[in-house]
Amino acid sequence: MSPTQPFINIRHAKKNYGDLEVLKDISLQVEKGQIVAIIGPSGSGKSTLLRAINDLDSLTEGEVWLEGMQVNKKLPTRQYEKHINKLRQEIGMVFQHFNLFPHLTVRENITLAPKMLKGLSNANANKLAQEQLERVGLGDRIDYYPSQLSGGQKQRVAIARALAMKPKVMLFDEATSSLDPELVEEVNLVMKQLAKENMTMIIVTHEMAFAQSVCDKVLFMDQGVVVEEGLPEIIFKTPQHERTKSFLANHLNGRF
């Protein structure tokens, strides 16, 4: 890995669903420890871009690189499976609908992958689960089932589950969008804490205030292209583009 190469490098990403172009030639570089927010109206392609980073949605064209390793490498199916499963262990992801496993306790949700994929012993896995849960402020919920938790607690467990894999980067796909307003803050707090710990994060969000306060860089996407990108204070205070202005005008009302 050359010293000038970005930590995450997305080059000329294109994605089509049939005739529909969801991503039209997008490039994005993220440095280690950087926090990037992707904002934009629904259908702008921002989630698709995020999900291309761990190849949950495969690009039609273009490349995704993580630390000098190509994520969406062209390989025979079997080899590609091995390759991507290995890489995904290093890319944590948090979903809008949590995707916790309802048949497993919080502890089992967190320890499942470390035990299966990293061969952690029961004792070590339990210790890991306890540590990660305390990190998100839920140390006392380890033996609960997801159905016994509030939405905010579920999302914090989902974050702990991702963190337990010791990822190099965390992807957040509208992590607070399905939460009741009073539960958003607890999740935001955890994300802010991660930011302080210099976690590399890419965040798709509707929370403009949060994006502005936490992020180093903001991308505004619309209709499959990056309309504008830059420092948050510039994007939010002095947007250059008409589409950015009207989007922010609609979304900033009452939020600040």
């Binding site: 949950l56 995904r88 262990q89 496993f101 499942l112 992958a113 994929l117 589950r161 894999m165």
Partner: peptide, 20 residues
């Protein structure tokens, strides 16, 4: 989302099917 949750953690398709 359950499949995505499993695959995102790095579980293979087979592991996701039988564990989740």
């Amino acid at each position: 989302g359950q499949t995505e949750g499993g695959r995102t953690l790095g579980l293979s398709q087979f592991q996701t099917i039988y564990k989740i």
